[in-house]
Amino acid sequence: MNPLPGYLLVAALLFAIGLAGALTRRNAILVLIGIELMLNAANLNLIAFWRYGPHPEALTGFLFAIFSIAVAAAEAAVGLGLVISIHRHLRTTDIDAMNRMKG
């Protein structure tokens, strides 16, 4: 039995869970957690396709996943910095209450 569709289905389900979290939660940090889940689901796809693809020795998907992890780490740092900054201005992390961009 081919194991690749199993990994892809798990990744798709994790992506959908992350998307639902990012779209429905009111706390800005929980939205960022949802985005992290979506990025990690994409990484699982990259690694699964690399492992079962025709040329695993080329390391293409492998290195793409490493770069993706680095970019996601930068995104998390900046995103959480923004949340802390917004909390200092508005005293809330509720994204329904963040309805103006002027500081």
């Binding site: 639902a20 429905t24 009111r26 706390n27």
Partner: peptide, 15 residues
Amino acid sequence: GIVSSRWLAGVIIAA
């Protein structure tokens, strides 16, 4: 509550 006012639309989009 913890979810935004239009949470149903978000769940439907994710599904």
